[in-house]
Design a protein around this nucleic acid. Structure first.
Lengths: 343, 343
DNA sequence: ATGAAAGCGCTAACAT
DNA sequence: ATGTTAGCGCTTTCAT
């Protein structure tokens, strides 16, 4: 009997009404007298009555809460996305439950299951790097659970999606390096089957092609766990530096890879930008105090969260099954700093 | 009828048993025949039956979930604490619901209320900078909801707490600057009534005193929102630089203040460490690539999360009301880098 | 060892 | 306009 919370029953008893009348008054039903409503509302207010969301969920099979499935919150990009999601959710009266997979497929599945069993009204998902099998999402989606994918999306499911313009971002980054005089540009990126990896790789290749620089497979290094694992980035950088034709610049595809790259190069006494130019995808708020200040591609993370949440609410609150799905593509932004400026 | 999830009823019907028998078999009650249990368990397994946690919560008034109340997750320290919490929670079968106050008292209250109404079994709390009134926690605590405070704690409530050794951390930071030859050391810190602020200020003062440096009130600058608000840090740094006796070093008390300070000084063309030494409290994983590399006091954030969660579980699972409370103090770690090294 | 039934807090169909 | 009642999925007391 932990919380002697006030229930509808208490109010009903005190006011000599039935629980249903109280419930209706609280829910602002039309078939209620103004008088009774006022009475109930005032009394409820006085007692600071709060409906028990658990009971509501059990009854209504909905919870006015949504689940987020991401790999990490200790990550500038994702924590900013989450803030965007929350800003919309808060205004619309939805609660947000965050879960982290730590890039583990197994954890992603477990989290998804848990969220579903908690009757979340919808899911906002960015896939883990290990995920190739989508059946845990597909099953729920088929049963009618609204899902919106963001950032790391999949083509296998027909639903709303939001991504940054990764192609353009990588294109811009690469082109900027080329225009700054770099010629042998490497690409340090994440797991090869993530959507963002493919999109960024394509942008990188396109920029090279448009500037008549031949694509060299050996200059693309994949970090399966995006630098999350100890030594992953160092190993990749090491192998780039060992190439007989060492690159003179790197486009890094994620937050952790960008910072990991700067750190690894510093350790190897490779000077940036003199010996190696860098442009990185990152949403770090402190790129300007890096050594050197990091030229970066920034994703509109907060906005992505907002858009994703709005799309999800649209799906949740739509009267009719939504048939037409949209993939919103948000622009990235290049900020030039010292790390890509040829001396 | 979103999730046609299998219920106990379905199993009962299919097996020609009553729901109570099925429930007992599932819960491994002693008063059940081995045969029936086996039958039920196998069938449940086959159908991939999952008990509905919402129904369980409603019934049992517990949820095997705990709530986290923090100001921000887009913060190295807190996201690391959360990871520590999760690591323990996951192993012990607890689910974690994270809420952010964004340093707003109102949001903190709303979040707390929501978590409580969601029947969380306990709360892990780090106070918002605006919070002075603790009645939202006190009411719940009085009703028996276990609460453990971490980092930004309160003396007003008798319960388990975990903090870093903020006094020592600040003492070490200050003493290190003194030993490095700095003499006029400022302290850039957070809201004055936060526990961490007081503890750190005391450590700072003690180090000055022990080294016979007079304490100067004008060298302590408070940022109400810990640098979360635009321009807050800049204004504080500005006012330090305007002093007729300008400081030659600063001890910064938080992540955002440390990075904000470096950025502000760079903008003002104040060279670090030549014109200004810096030691900062921060859990940023990238202090080594800052310009200059930042000497810092690191808090054992992950461990703090683990300890807090263990304490909370102890409270939750204790058969008898816990009477004896503990405040665990975890050691901080000073790492010396360029920002505090007199040239 | 098993079943029947009540009840957690709420909503809604069905009376009146 | 209001009350009665059933039921969401589960656990648990009380019968048998």
């Amino acid at each position: 009997m932990k919380f002697e919370a006030i229930t509808i029953k208490d109010i009903a008893k005190a006011l000599g009404l039935s629980t249903s009348t109280v419930s209706r008054a609280l829910r602002d039903s039309y078939e209620i007298s103004a008088e009774t409503r006022k009475l109930v509302l005032e009394y409820a207010e006085k007692l600071n009555y709060r409906p028990n969301p658990i009971a509501q969920s059990l009854k209504e099979k909905r919870s006015r809460s949504i689940g987020i499935v991401v790999c990490e919150i200790a990550n500038n990009f994702f924590s900013q996305v989450i803030n965007g999601i929350e800003s919309v959710a808060y205004n619309k009266g939805y609660y947000v439950i965050i879960s982290q997979s730590h890039e583990s497929f197994e954890r992603e599945v477990a989290n998804t299951q848990y969220l579903a069993s908690r009757s979340v009204d919808g899911l906002l998902v960015s896939l883990s790097t290990e995920t190739t099998d989508l059946s845990h999402f597909n099953k729920l989606h088929d049963k009618g659970l609204p899902i919106v994918f963001f950032d790391r999306i999949t083509e296998e499911m027909a639903t709303h999606k939001v991504i940054a313009n990764n192609f353009n971002g990588a294109y811009q980054a690469t082109e900027h390096l080329i225009r700054s005089g770099f010629r042998r540009i490497a690409h340090l990126t994440i797991s090869s089957h993530l959507s963002i990896t493919k999109e960024r790789l394509a942008g990188y290749k396109a920029a090279l092609a448009d500037h008549h620089i031949p694509f060299d497979e050996s200059l693309v290094k994949y970090c399966r766990y995006g630098g999350l694992i100890e030594g992953e980035t160092d190993a990749a950088i090491e192998s780039l530096l060992k190439l007989t034709q060492r690159p003179d610049a790197i486009v890094t595809a994620s937050d952790k890879l960008s910072t990991g790259c700067l750190a690894a190069l510093a350790r190897k006494n490779v000077r940036v930008p003199q010996d190696m130019g860098i442009v990185g995808f990152t949403n770090s708020p402190v790129t300007d105090i890096f050594h050197p200040a990091l030229t970066c591609i920034r994703q509109p993370a907060f906005e992505m969260g907002q858009v994703a949440m709005e799309m999800l609410i649209q799906l949740i609150e739509s009267k009719h099954p939504v048939e037409k799905f949209e993939t919103r593509v948000l622009n990235t932004e290049l900020t030039v700093r010292a790390s890509s400026t040829r001396p």
